[in-house]
């Protein structure tokens, strides 16, 4: 039974890991926790829904359409709102992300209503595969694989390409990046686009599990944020491990301790992290020496 719980925890954990990853990328680049992340993914998922269900076009087109939309949305958000802030401080920018979240939420409600819809995926929720007594649905497998593919691609991008290296450089020292001719605004835009795509992937994987409605991302986003904090917020491997761990712990807690308080685990974990290891499991914590 425990094995089964861990596998289904891993499935939901993959989604937390993706959202944690998306938030960490932007946090690393700009120190902003982007609270619009979830609804950016949600609205991209609606685009997929439009293409797939309303127009009846094939799944790959819906997927590609949602991803292209996510890239544009990420760039636009950075270009239109984040970049405009003169002498920005983090608090103001957080308010900007919250405002954008409300805007997207309102837009979705106005355009599609708050009905719960179904996003048909080519992976079945009911067909399962059985590995040594542990049962997992095709959709679960697809979710876990998606998260792993994203991680590998991201790792490759950050460590093997010039653009990825420039992104790390801007994250570490924006001023130094600028005086080396790296256009830091454009790099920040790319960071937003990448995390928007990852958020959209998470949205598409979570829509079939729950339902497609304007509220669907709020709970996963909070969990993803908790996972990112657990991982140290600035560490991408930390965010991934945090996501998987949170999914598994939450599931085990729900079965063995209390189903009603399952969702509270995430916040219990945040509190414990803040008390015992403020830097998170893999984050750096520079202690200021006097």
């Amino acid at each position: 039974m425990t094995g089964q719980l861990i596998i289904s925890g891993l499935t939901i954990g993959s989604i937390y890991a993706m959202l944690a990853l998306a938030m960490s990328i932007i946090y690393k680049a700009s120190e902003i926790p982007n609270f619009a992340q979830g609804d950016m993914g949600m609205i991209s998922t609606y685009i997929a829904y439009m293409i797939l269900v309303v127009h009846g076009w094939p799944f790959w087109m819906a997927f590609a359409g949602a991803m292209i939309f996510a890239v544009i949305l990420g760039f636009l958000f950075e270009f239109l709102f984040i970049r405009r802030a003169k002498e920005p401080n983090i608090l103001n920018l957080i308010i900007v992300t919250l405002g954008f979240q409300l805007f997207l939420y309102g837009m979705t409600g106005w355009r599609w209503g708050s009905d719960q819809r179904r996003l048909g995926m080519p992976f079945s929720e009911t067909d399962t595969i059985n590995v040594g007594g542990v049962v997992i649905s095709h959709l679960g497998v697809a979710t876990i694989l998606t998260s792993i593919i994203i991680m590998v691609m991201l790792w490759f991008f950050l460590s093997r390409t010039k653009l990825g290296l420039a992104m790390k450089a801007v994250q570490q020292n924006p001023m130094a990046a600028e005086i080396n001719g790296i256009p830091k605004d454009r790099i920040l835009g790319i960071s937003f686009a990448i995390s928007s795509v990852i958020g959209a992937m998470a949205g598409m994987m979570i829509a079939p599990i729950t339902t497609l409605d304007p509220n669907m991302m709020w709970d996963p986003l909070m969990k993803g944020f908790a996972a990112a904090v657990l991982g140290g917020m600035t560490s991408l491997p930390g965010a991934i491990i945090g996501g998987y761990l949170l999914g598994i712990i939450e599931n085990l807690f729900g079965f063995y301790v209390s189903l009603e308080f399952k969702s509270v685990v995430a916040f219990l974990i945040i509190v414990l992290v803040l008390v015992f290891k403020p830097a998170g499991i893999l984050g750096h914590h520079y202690v200021r020496k006097v």
Binding site: A166, K168, Q172, N173, A176, A177, N180, I182
Partner: peptide, 19 residues
């Protein structure tokens, strides 16, 4: 100095040649 602390020496030099 303002070097990129968490990049290697070689990567720092490559970033200098970004353009």
């Amino acid at each position: 100095r303002q070097i990129f602390n968490e990049l290697t020496v070689k990567e720092n030099l490559e970033m200098g040649a970004y353009s």
